[in-house]
């Protein structure tokens, strides 16, 4: 019951938050100097006609009400730059690619990151630990576009193990998954190692050991459960940002995900697309944070939401 009430409260707050965000971003994009329809060869009279066509000649508050009304029906409007295509349609076609790649990257980063972190903690000061630290340093300090081009050059151009770009078969997904996941992997490995080391010498672990529990049960059931707390906090926003598309990796591997729309819509002042993507991303982020809070409550009984 407590949990349900908590979720309800959070949902209400989220809706208000998203409403404020929509309002702010709607007016902010209009404040950006320039116009979505100015082009090299546009004649003045023709510009007025196209403004009228898209309703941009009306007062801004009127445009806002129209937009909000449509938004309530789930209609995010029509893109100005990708001619004749609705924002809903753009998200519907592009998001699956970002989601697919993001999930792969998260799965890769989470399994390998946790594993490396745990092994490193147990092998403290030994080869595995050093290896983990090297991976962590590379993963956090090398930007993903350099990593992207590096793996593309090495594994596609030189070794020819994988295709260089596109996203049409399993082989195509390997390099982008690696490039996108490595940074996350590094962070997760680093956090896991630190928090595992914290709990490794705690009393309850010693007790568990004394009870004669198997190493596996101690690690998974006792240590990892506690060590996971900081990682879960990290994971929410991390997953949200990875799954909703990343400009850099998608660009390097020519993946038709949402990433490039974030950049091109702003460059082209595609008002409806900018606002639509902002709403989509915000809703996703809010949802992920909500999920994290729930998982948190489930894992840590001290939060007291689960009886």
């Amino acid at each position: 019951m407590k949990l349900l009430k908590f979720i309800l409260k959070r949902v209400v707050v989220s809706v208000i938050m998203i409403f404020c965000l929509v309002t702010i971003s709607f007016f902010l994009v209009k404040l950006i100097p320039g116009s979505p329809f100015t082009s090299e060869k546009m004649q003045a009279g023709n510009k007025a006609a196209i403004y009228a066509y898209y309703g941009l000649d009306k007062p801004v508050y009127e445009q806002y009400f129209t937009y909000m009304k449509n938004l309530l029906h789930g209609d995010l409007g029509t893109s100005y730059k990708i001619r004749g295509v609705t924002v809903n349609e753009i998200i519907r076609t592009a998001f699956p690619y970002s989601l697919d790649l993001g999930m792969r990257a998260v799965a890769f980063a989470l399994t390998m990151g946790l594993l490396l972190g745990i092994v490193a903690a147990y092998q403290r000061g030994k080869a595995m630990d050093t290896f983990t630290m090297i991976v962590a340093i590379i993963g956090t300090s090398v930007p993903s576009f350099i990593m992207g081009f590096f793996v593309q050059y090495l594994f596609a151009v030189k070794l020819k193990w994988f295709p260089p770009a596109e996203y049409t078969s399993f082989a195509h997904t390997v390099l982008p998954t690696f490039a996108l996941g490595l940074g996350m992997l590094a962070t997760i490995a680093k956090y896991t190692r630190t928090s595992m080391l914290e709990v490794i010498s705690s009393d309850y672990v010693k007790t568990a050991d004394a009870k004669g529990l198997s190493k596996f049960r101690i690690i998974v059931g006792h240590q990892l459960r506690n060590a996971l707390m900081p990682i879960i906090t990290l994971l929410g926003p991390m997953i949200a940002s990875v799954i909703t598309g990343t400009f850099v990796v998608e660009n390097v591997f020519a993946i038709p995900g949402l990433g490039r729309h974030y950049v091109t819509s702003v460059q082209g002042l595609d008002y409806t697309l900018i606002t639509g993507l902002t709403i989509f991303f915000a809703a996703f982020l809010v949802l992920m944070n909500l999920l994290v809070d729930i998982v948190y409550a489930l894992i840590d009984p001290r939060i007291g939401l689960v009886e």
């Binding site: 697919d100 049409t168 399993f170």
Partner: peptide
């Protein structure tokens, strides 16, 4: 554990890759 997890991840992703496959480049 890691190997089996990676395998699982591989399985899970294999099914999705089928659906996202567009024009074949092969």
């Amino acid at each position: 554990v890691a190997m089996s997890l990676t395998l699982l991840a591989g399985c899970g992703t294999k099914t999705t890759s089928g659906s996202s496959a567009a024009g074949s480049s092969a």
